[in-house]
Amino acid sequence: MRRLVLLAAAALLAGCHRAPTRTNEVVSTASREISTDASSSIWDAAPEHLANLLPQDLVDPRILKPTTAEVRVRSVHNGGEIAFRLEWIDRTNDDMPGPARFLDGCAVQIPRGIEPNPPDPRMGQGGRPVEIAFWRADWQAAVNGRKDTIQAIYPNAAVDHYPFQAKSLEGTDAQKQMETRYAPARAVGNHRAGPRDSPVEDLVAEGPGTLSPAGARQSRGKGARTNDGWAVVIARKLPEGLGPNKRTQIAFAVWEGSSKETGARKMRTGWIPLAVRAAR
């Protein structure tokens, strides 16, 4: 009998754990603090928007079968920065790059200009850019401490010798220069090519195929595995003209690495209204 009472009490307490308030739009509530920790208490009071994801089947190359069904979004802001917590179900942790290996990731897209009619949700349009903050699982692993070596990806890889490891070059600038020369994308300053010091990349686009690095870094973030998927926080500077009691549009995308999703092969939303609330 005593056990039964305890069980009933536990069930009651569990029931008391407040289900999140669901909203039809993304509502960003004011918070004194912004944290990129997905388990921080700042997210507890924020309402949640359940964004249904659609296959990107408009522009080639596309995916024709849906994978990740939905992403749960919460948002907070502090007047200077706005943060989004994205959570989705993904049973596999895809954070190892390689041939035919693809990475889990997510992105937040906001029009650069705050206007009543947003640009094309398919990554903006000519003269009407969108700003995109893109998080990827392998960059998170790098920031979390994964080494910048082939053995970090393939533990049993055996390498006889890299030319820049010649004894005569040890510890010299010439060695660093030579190592960079043998990593062409790094040598030409491709931000994507690593080594990464942030799991989030800032991008701008004016339509499909036009994605380019943003001029300056304005986003930060952090992702962590949950019991059934990912929880990723992306925080960025409040877009110009957006503030308390203002509205704009927002879109999300999720890549499922084990479904070979990359680039245009992704699950995405259309525009969703984003309302920024003032502090009470």
């Binding site: 790059p97 390689g98 041939p99 035919a100 290996r101 392998d138 910048d148 082939i150 990806i153 990593a183 062409p184 994308a185 790094r186 491709n190 994507r192 090519a193 690593g194």
Partner: peptide, 17 residues
Amino acid sequence: VRGCPYKKVFFNPMTNT
């Protein structure tokens, strides 16, 4: 890499290009 029938494009996992 997918498109080239001769498979003469290679993905570099260190630079992601």
